[in-house]
Design a protein around this nucleic acid. Structure first.
Length: 215
DNA sequence: GGGACGATCGAT
DNA sequence: TCGATCGTCCCC
């Protein structure tokens, strides 16, 4: 929460470069109900018109995908399976519809509010440890998936097109600067229809981090 | 106007 | 492994 903000230029790289760069940064949402925040630990790159897994595959803008055709650093939010919202950060430059899906967070702030929003009654009695941290095994289910983190952070169509640099929903720099992250890659999740693209190692996560989605 | 489908999740 | 659930997209 004390991390410096990120600039638009940070997002002005290919999705393949932005996806690992976002690992370790902090997603914050200052909502009317309160503040929630989490460290990004898992992402996926969607590379645009030539990527069969991307919503922008083929390169023709639609009402849903139009934000990806604009400048980098804005939120692309979409509904999947009729019930879950997912958050992406738009990458690259104007006219190049690339984005990075935020797949998992390590909760940092507003954990009781996250529990409430997720409706996890089994967690309502979870307490902080003596040192102020929360028990990892209990709270990891809050945000270890794109639909789950959107629910916990109260992200839905209202945030479509918001700036991720300067809005109540924004991304802050990695606060653990100096400590290089160990990053692992693998195929993206849930894109079996994408033919050859389903094998591309365009999913990125912090090695060994317990808050990463199963996959 | 209609039908097929999905960058997920949680219960079985 | 399977069902929920509905906006988007594309075809008729």
């Amino acid at each position: 929460m004390t991390s410096p903000p990120i600039t638009y230029s940070f997002f002005e790289k290919t999705a393949l470069e932005l996806a690992p760069a976002l690992l370790g940064t902090v997603l914050v949402h200052e909502s009317p109900e309160g503040v929630t925040a989490g460290r990004i630990v898992e992402t996926e790159a969607y590379m645009g018109p030539d990527d069969k897994a991307a919503h922008s595959y083929g390169g023709r803008p639609t009402e849903r995908t139009r934000v990806m055709y604009g400048p980098a650093g804005y939120a692309y939010v979409y509904l999947i399976y009729g019930m879950h919202w997912c958050l992406n950060a738009v990458a690259s430059e104007i006219g190049t519809p690339q984005a990075v899906l935020i797949r998992a967070l390590e909760p940092i702030d507003g954990i009781p509010l996250m529990i409430e929003r997720r409706g996890l009654s089994s967690l309502t009695s979870v307490q902080q440890n003596e040192d102020g941290t929360w028990p990892t095994t209990k709270i990891k289910s809050l945000t270890n998936g794109p639909g789950k983190l959107a629910k916990a952070m109260s992200i839905d169509k209202r945030q479509y097109g918001w700036s991720l640099v300067d809005s109540p929903l924004r991304i802050l720099q990695d606060s653990s600067d100096g400590i290089p992250l160990e990053i692992t890659t693998g195929p993206r999740i849930g894109i079996d229809y994408a033919e050859e693209a389903k094998e591309y190692p365009w999913r990125f996560w912090i090695k060994g981090n317990p808050f990463v989605s199963k996959g």
